[in-house]
């Protein structure tokens, strides 16, 4: 459609627009690139040089060796992997059930159930009653405290349900004639068609578990159950690297921080490009209104 002639004003706009977008991307990505370079540098060289960096100075992977030798990071990583896999499995199965049921025409009490789940987006018991609930269920200091309370996210149900509503009914009816039940229909017909929305759901839940720290902080006491983010908080924000390098002087501590950041964000950067193409198709406009 853009074969129309462009005025001078439009050309100037075009060039400045491209320039602006490129600058914006650089600002977005550079902090991570800086951290990567600094983590691979010699800590004293970084300190001496100062300012921005375009490549590592005095290439050195010593900080990574310290990170991987650190017991907290290893334990945290393993725990986080467990929370992500266990958590997402439960999230996705319940979200699929919820979205499937709430998108069927014959679902009894559908309006009531929709109201019941959407209301929780606007009002909730809040921090204290939730904490007391987890406590009275005997889940304090249990790994389940990080998995059960967030088992279904309403927003994700709505995204998936909207997607399922857009699937023509004829597919379900054809299957019913072949005497398929709802479980068959969900897993054999509806789920395979809904892959873009399910992928987006998996991504949201997985990133949520990967990045979560607050529930772990309030519910867990046992360090062996801590997720990675809780250890990261100690290292990055409370600036406690004592576990890692008692002997290290301050510049090395800086490098340990950078290496830790890289190690913690690599998995997300790695899966990201594979799921990225589902973003727009998986999250349709209709998803916002409900």
């Amino acid at each position: 459609m853009q074969n129309f002639k462009k005025s001078i004003g439009e050309k100037i706009f075009g060039v400045s627009n491209y320039t602006f977008l490129i600058l914006l991307s650089i600002i977005t990505i550079y902090p991570f690139y800086y951290v990567l370079c600094a983590s691979l540098s010699d800590s004293y060289a970084v300190l001496a040089k100062g300012g921005l960096m375009l490549y590592p100075v005095g290439f050195n992977v010593g900080a990574y060796a310290l990170v991987f030798l650190n017991n907290n990071i290893v334990v945290g990583y393993a725990n986080t992997l467990f929370y992500v896999f266990a958590g997402v499995s439960l999230n996705i199965i319940l979200t699929m059930f919820a979205a499937y049921c709430l998108s069927r025409r014959t679902m009894p009490f559908k309006r009531f159930f929709m109201l019941m789940i959407t209301f929780t987006m606007y009002f909730s018991g809040g921090l204290i009653p939730n904490y007391l609930l987890v406590k009275s269920l005997g889940l304090l200091n249990s790994r389940l405290a990080l998995i059960l309370p967030g088992a279904v996210a309403t927003w994700n149900v709505i995204i998936l349900r909207t997607y399922m509503l857009s699937i023509p009914n004829s597919m379900e009816e054809a299957a019913r004639i072949d005497s398929a039940n709802d479980l068959n229909i969900l897993f054999r017909i509806i789920a395979p068609i809904s892959i873009p929305a399910i992928a987006v759901n998996i991504l949201f839940y997985a990133v949520g578990h990967w990045n979560s720290w607050f529930p772990a902080m309030i519910y867990l006491q046992d360090k062996n159950k801590f997720p990675l983010q809780l250890f990261l908080r100690q290292i990055l924000i409370q600036a406690d690297v004592s576990d890692m390098a008692d002997y290290a002087t301050e510049p090395i501590a800086e490098n340990i921080k950078y290496a830790t950041i890289i190690v913690s964000i690599i998995p997300i950067l790695f899966v990201f490009p594979f799921l990225q193409r589902f973003f727009v198709t998986g999250m349709m406009v209709g998803a916002i209104k409900e």
Binding site: C101, P129, L133, A151
Partner: peptide, 29 residues
């Protein structure tokens, strides 16, 4: 006729009751 749908929805229903509506009730404290 829709018992399987209701059965599939049951865990979701109980999740919302336990982890969303009981805390709302808990606000009476």
């Amino acid at each position: 006729k829709n018992r399987l749908l209701l059965l599939m929805f049951a865990p979701v229903f109980f999740y919302y009751v336990i982890f969303n509506y009981i805390p709302m009730f808990g606000l009476i404290i």
